[in-house]
Every structure is written in C-alpha cells, then in structure tokens.
Design a protein around this nucleic acid. Structure first.
Length: 848
DNA sequence: CAACGCGC
C-alpha cells in the first residue's frame, strides 16, 4: 500500500485508544482516514475479535468505503469488510468491519443498546453534524458509560473544530493529520457581485472562461437560480461555447450523469450544495462560489419548515473552494469581498439546532430518557422544538400524557418515516388500507414524482393532489420504465417511491395486491398523519384556509385543488409572516371528519355580546381545535346572559352605554361628594372608574331579562346605585348631600355635585336678597359655591362669601346691570330687599 | 416556483 498522510498518526491512534475510551481524529479530505483508520484498528489485539462499526453519512460513501477496504485486503465485499445500508446488506459471519449509514446505526442502537460484539464505533465526516449522527453519538456515549465501558468511540472530522467534541468525550486525545489537496488561489470579485445573482454569476463564468483552463464548477443556491443562469449562458449557439450542465437533486438521473462525467469539450456545471459533499465532479479546476445556499429552517412557533436563501458559512466556502484543488492547483472565484468573508459564520448551523425534532423526541422516548439533558450533546436540542415534537407525538398517540412511549409509539419508531407518516401507516392498516397507506407515505418521503414546473398529464382541477400521484405511480408499475408515461412524471422518483413502499409493506406486514384508493380514503389517511392541519376554507372561492391548529394557510399554485370547503393540508411551508403556503392538499368530507375525529370534536357554548346587532347572541359551536364545523342557536342561561351583557358593556363605550339620567348622575355624584368629604365614614366608591370595573358586583343582579342594547339603555340605574348604599347611608345622604336647598325667595334650587370641587348652587342674584351666610351642607362642613346669575341666567359672580359680595361687589354690579335689566329689582340696600324670582311688576303682585 | 441527506 502506498503511503497516505494519515499513516503517520495511526500508531498514535492505536496507543491512544488503549488508554482512552474515545479519540478524535482531525484530517482534511485526501488524508485517507476513511479507509486506513478501520483497517489499522482491525489489527489491534485489544479488539478481541469484536467488530468495528463505521458510520458514513451517505449510502454511496458507505458502499465505496467498504468496497475499497475489501479490495485493500484482497477480498470481495461481504467477507472481512461489509456494509449495511437501507435496502442492502452485505455482511457475513466473517465480517469484522461493517460500514453503515445513519438510520441503520440508530436502529441497531435502539434494538441492542449494548452493541454486543462491537468493539469500536467510528463516526466518519462527523463535522457534517446531522441530526442522526448527533443522536447516535449521544446514545453510544450513554451505552459506553452505563453498559459497555470497554466500547471505544472514534470521531473523524475534516474541519478545524474538533476540540469541542474532544472535550465532550471526556477530554479525548485529539490527533491531527495533514491533508493531501493542492493549493487553491482565492479571487474575491466583490465589485462585480452587486447585481442580481444569475447575472453576476454568468458574468463571472465568462471571466473565468477567459482567465482559466479546465472545467468550472459553479455553486448557486437553488434550482431556480440554476435555470435562470443556464438561460443567460446558453444563448450563444456557436460550437465554441462550453457545455453548460445543471446539477441538482430533482434532475433526472441521466442529466446528473452528464454533469458528473468528463465531457469532450470544456464544461460548466451549475450546481446546488449537492456538489459540495454528495457528488464529486471529474475534471474541475475552477470553482465559482455565489456565496449563498438555500437552507431549511424550522420555526417551532409555526411547526413548519421554511426555505431561506442565506450566506454560506466560512467552513462551507472552504469546502466549496477545495473542490478546485483535487487534481492540481486550482482557482476559486468568490462573489463577495474580504470584508464579508470576515463576517461569515464559521460553521453551518447544526441540524439539531434548527430542525423539526419530532423524530428525535420519539427516539429519546424509545431510549427511555425523559430529559434530553441527561445525554451528552455538542449542542443540546432546543427546548421549544423538542416540546413541539412531544406535543405532536402525544396527538399521534406515540406518547402517553406523561411523555412515556406507548405501544403504538414503539411500533411507529420502527418505520423509516416521519412519526406523522408512521401514524398514517398504523391507522391505515387497522382500517384495511395498509397498501395505500404505504404508497402515500412513500410518495411523501421521497422526491415528488411530478416534476415542476408541471407540463401535461395529470394536472387539472382536482380534489386530491395525492390521488393524482397514486394513479401515476400505479401507471408506472403497470407499464414499467419503457411504457408511455405522461410528461412531467419522473420515473426515477417512481422507482424510488415504489421501493420505499415495498419496504414499508414488509414492515407493516401488508400482503396481497394494492387495492384502488379513492380521494376520500386518501383524505382520511392523510388526516391521520396531519390531524392538526385539517382545515376549513375561509370563504367560498378563497384559497385561504384556517387550520385546526389555529394557524392560517394558503393553497399554492402548485396544488391542483379546486374550490373545496374542507381539506387536509399535507405539505406546507412557513411564510414570512401570517399564512403558510400549502403545496399539496386533499379534500376531506365533513362527515368523515365528524365520524373519524369524533373524539376530538367538542360542542362549545358561546354567549356573546354582538356589538353590531346590539344584542346578546347565543349559539353552540361544533369545534375541531380552532375549526368551527357547525353551529346552532341556543337559549342562554340567566348567568350566561348576564356575563355576556357585562362584557358587552365593557366592550362598548363602557358606562356611557347605560342610562345615565339626571337623577342617576346626581345620585352618583352626591355619593362621591360625601365619600370625598368624609373618607373615614366608609362610603362606597361610585367613581366611573370603579363602577366600570365592578359591573359584575353592582349591576349584574339587575340585568335579568335584558337581551338587547335598547333594553339595556332603558334600564333605570337608580335602583342598582342605591343598592350599593345601606339604608342608613341612604338616609344620611339625603341630609348631608341634599338634592336641593331652599333659598330666601322660597325657590328649591338643585345643587350641582358634578365637579370634583365643592358643590355648586347656581341661583339668580335677586333670589338671595337679605341672606348673609352662604348655605352649607355636609353637616355644615362645606359651603356651596354660589354662582350668582343675572336675570338672563348669565353668571355674574362666583363666591363662597355672600356677605362680602353684598357689601363690596354688589354696588358695582347693580350700576352695570340696572340699565340692561330695568324690569328687575336692583335695590340700593340688598339686605332689606324682598328676595324674588320674578320681575318688579310680578313681585309687587306676587311678592307678598 | 422545492437545498441536501438518511432509515430493522
């Protein structure tokens, strides 16, 4: 075997593993760690014939690593070196090194927590930090500490961030190896990177074609940008222009092959992140990096994923640049500045920090941990996302109300699909729709078999996006790859879905042929997976829906659903704010909802104040979560009626809605005056603020029989207000805060208690002749404020000292007003004049 | 107008 950089540290690795339970190996691509480390460990006598498990993040990487190692020991794969990936297992009794993908390791740990017979577990490419590998490490570490002290863990990582994982594993030794890649010349093109992305990128491609040689790999965020960029680059039509190849996951297999294989002329590959780790392209000497990628963000507050375009991390940019240095020295154009380079986040956010954690929550429950914090995490799963996951698992019956896994939950964890789809499988099988359930779960797990943008075929207004796909899948099964399959159906996706469906049928134990499935059945099955997304159209003809979970959704153009009152929203994406986008949905009959979800439906009595009608309305609503399925009129009880009225009074202008007659208002202000004057006497508080806040106490008993605003605004407030005072208080109110006083003329004049200050007595000056003392109330404590009025009832003077008015101000007033009101008496001596409310003529006649 | 990957 020729030497590789990793060989230098293999002896240290073996001796470190003898003394420690875990070792971290940090080695860049090309160091040879994937093949050399397992083979070196195999020679370690301390292994005692136990096996080595190595985890790879992708199936292709797993089979390649196993084949290469097998060839190095001069055997076929499946003897000393084997692999287990989904759908395929090549191991035997001789196998000592088993390369596995992530799901396989999770399942093996869950079924055999002690990993009997395994001596070492190697985590390759650990820096990718998938949810699976984070969980697998946490479980392995737990097994190592509780069940298998002699189990060894080896972490292999490409980046310079291996120190945290070494610390997590009890300060494991950290071994570093050189890589074997060529230098890459980085060129920052920030000045040319100011336009729209596809334009900027195609300009950079033209520049690179002039300045460099060799094939060019371009990183763009998504398929849309790739298509636009392809159009911009493809419009030359001469034989000299390079071959432009798009490369992304949704592309048919042969188109992906064209992008990867060497071409006879110069090639430009326009790729998503698929070329960053998953696929290697032959002949690349130049990389152009747009600096952006599309990333899935989970929003625990909506429970939905959202695709966002974001700047790549520095680690990702380094990985992309490294793709130019595999054959020899390379060149990488970066469409950003050195300044922006310094602001990039160092690493991509690990999946565990920003994903739907329903699956993780189920795995933890299956492992038997109630508290995630009891395991070792590089980044602990965020509490909000974990809680959202647990809530959903309870809704699906996988956890009991204490959060402990149920029998159904154990069964659900055995299916290689999201717990929602596992629930669909279990419920579907119970009702005899097992095979259709497997097809639906497979179609939703794998890539969409309908290519987008859609051309012809199954499109048209429909009441089921799923039934169209089930029929297309069936069609493909009947005719095979060579049959006449309508445009827009992806045969590779059909093959993948069929394979998954067959596996699910095996696990579920479904036998026999696939029976046809109606749109109605599809709706029911999907509702088992997405009970929280049963939705009702906001109004006829609208694309907007209210979901049972209380959130909103809008049907996208992508869905073929027509005008449908009730649906189940199947694939959904979170929006910036407000409504999410429903990509795929299925009609769901109201009678099916009533029958199958009877246990979740509740009748709720609603007695409310309807401000528009100005009356209490009472109905009973049939509710599924936030959805109102139907409603009926009811007769409210007295208590319900009263509390609805009270809330109505609060919602409207409050107290202003009530019938504040002069008498009621005066009564209220008299009590307030006395309460202010004698705070020690314990009078009730009748200020508007307090009355408004205590309607239920003082007004409620008087509301019986009242239903409408009109009745309410006629309600006499005096009885309830008086009801707040004791009998003694009512009596002393009449004496201490009288409604009227009798003035010298004999008139009974009403006292105005409205202001916050002392009460006001507004009286014509002539009626007060001869009186020296200002009238006093409140047991003589408060003199009223006199508003002395002209004969036209205009205020002349405000005073609380009548005596000094007569003596010093009256002569001036008389002089001024005598001419203006000649018919009224203006005596020189007010002390001895006859007080009167009449003119001179009348006072002569009636004054005696 | 939908990145990528994985599963007894």
């Amino acid at each position: 075997m020729y030497r590789l950089p990793i060989d230098d540290i293999l002896p240290q690795l073996l001796s470190a593993l003898n003394d420690h339970s875990a070792v971290v190996v940090q080695a860049p691509p090309g160091a040879g760690k994937t093949t050399r480390v397992p083979l070196a460990l195999l020679k370690n006598p301390l292994l005692h014939n136990q096996t080595i498990l190595m985890l790879e993040p992708r199936r292709l990487a797993a089979t390649n690593a196993a084949r290469w190692m097998a060839s190095l020991v001069g055997e076929e794969v499946g003897k000393t070196v084997g692999y287990s990936i989904r759908f395929e297992r090549k191991v035997s009794a001789l196998t000592r090194i088993e390369v596995v993908t992530e799901g396989i390791l999770s399942r093996r740990l869950q079924s055999d927590p002690a990993l009997a017979g395994v001596g070492v577990v190697i985590f390759d490419e650990f820096h990718e930090r998938s949810l699976h590998s984070d969980l697998a490490l946490a479980l392995c570490r737990d097994a190592q500490q509780g069940l298998r002290e002699e189990l060894k863990i080896v972490i292999m990582s490409a980046t310079l961030d291996a120190a945290p994982v070494a610390a997590l594993l009890g300060n494991a030794p950290l071994l570093t190896s050189e890589g074997r890649t060529f230098p890459v010349d980085l060129r920052y093109l920030h000045r040319e990177a100011e336009g729209r992305l596809p334009e900027t990128v195609s300009a950079a491609v033209h520049r690179a074609l002039k300045e460099t040689e060799g094939d060019i790999l371009v990183f763009l965020p998504g398929a849309g940008d790739i298509r636009r960029c392809q159009q911009l680059l493809g419009n030359h039509g001469d034989g000299q222009s390079p071959l432009v190849c798009p490369l992304y996951g949704d592309l048919p297999f042969d188109a992906q092959e064209r992008a990867i294989m060497p071409a006879s002329r110069r090639k430009v590959v326009l790729a998503t992140n698929i070329a960053e780790t998953s696929l290697t392209i032959e002949g690349v000497r130049v990389v152009i990096d747009s600096g952006f990628c599309r990333r899935l963000r989970f929003d625990p507050s909506s429970g939905l994923n959202r695709l966002v375009t974001a700047r790549v991390s520095a680690a990702s940019a380094a990985q992309r640049a490294g793709r130019a240095g595999r054959l020899g020295p390379g060149i990488c154009y970066r469409l950003w500045s050195e300044h922006i380079q310094s602001t990039l986040i160092p690493f991509e956010t690990p999946e565990i920090c920003a994903s739907d954690l329903t699956w993780l929550a189920l795995e933890l429950a299956l492992w038997g941990v109630a508290d995630a914090a009891s395991l070792a995490w590089l980044d602990a799963p965020p509490a909000a996302a974990l809680a959202e996951g647990r809530t959903l698992l309870k809704r699906l019956g996988a956890l009991d109300r204490h959060g402990v896994i149920s029998e159904a939950g154990r069964r659900m964890a055995g299916f290689p699909v999201h717990p929602r789809l596992a629930h669909l499988l279990v419920e579907g099988e119970k009702r005899g729709y097992g095979a259709a359930a497997c097809d639906i779960a497979a179609l939703l797990t794998e890539r969409d078999i309908f290519r987008y943008p859609f051309s012809t075929g199954y499109r048209g207004v429909s009441d089921s996006d799923m039934l169209d796909r089930l029929e297309a899948l069936d069609e493909w099964r009947k005719r095979g790859d060579n049959g006449a399959i309508p445009d827009g159906v992806d045969m590779n996706a059909c093959r993948a879905a069929d394979r998954v469906s067959r596996q699910l049928r095996n696990i579920l134990g479904v036998k026999g042929t696939i029976q046809p499935c109606s749109a109605e059945t599809a709706g029911l099955l999907l509702a088992w997976a997405y009970p929280d997304r049963i939705a009702r159209q906001r109004e006829p003809g609208s694309a907007r829906y209210l979901l049972a979970n209380g959130r909103g959704g809008k049907l996208s153009e992508r869905s073929a659903l027509g005008d449908t009152p009730f649906i189940v929203a199947v694939t959904m994406e979170g929006g910036e704010r407000g409504d999410g986008v429903i990509h795929l949905a299925n009609a769901l009959g109201i009678d099916i909802i009533r029958k199958e979800f009877a246990g979740d439906i509740a009748w709720q009595r609603l007695v409310d104040w309807d401000g528009q009608q100005g009356r209490v309305v009472a109905r009973e609503e049939e509710r599924l979560g936030a959805l109102v399925l139907g409603s009926r009129q009811i007769t409210p009880s007295t208590d319900e009626m009263v509390s609805a009225l009270l809330s109505g009074i609060g919602e409207e202008q409050g107290l202003a809605l009530l019938n504040w007659t002069r008498e009621a208002e005066q009564f209220r202000s008299r009590v307030c005056f006395i309460a202010r004057t004698f705070p020690e006497d314990g009078w009730p508080d009748l200020t508007p603020e307090h009355l408004g806040g205590t309607l239920a106490e003082w007004l409620a008993p008087y509301l019986t029989g009242i239903k409408t605003l009109a009745q309410l605004s006629n309600l006499d407030l005096l009885p309830p207000l008086k009801g707040m005072l004791s009998w003694e208080q009512q009596r002393s109110l009449d004496t201490q805060a009288p409604t009227h006083v009798v003035v010298p003329s004999g008139s009974r004049i009403s006292i105005d208690y409205d202001k916050d200050g002392p009460p006001v007595l507004a009286v014509k000056l002539q009626e007060m002749f001869g009186l020296a003392d200002t009238p006093k109330i409140a047991r003589g404590r408060v003199p009223v404020v006199l508003h002395l009025l002209s004969p036209a009832r205009r205020p002349i003077q405000v005073t609380q000292d009548l005596k000094s008015f007569w003596n010093s101000i009256y002569p001036e007033v008389k002089k001024e007003l005598k001419g203006r009101y000649p018919k009224h008496p203006w005596p020189d001596d007010p002390w001895n004049a006859v007080p009167t409310r009449h003119t001179k003529k009348r006072s002569v006649v009636g004054g005696r």
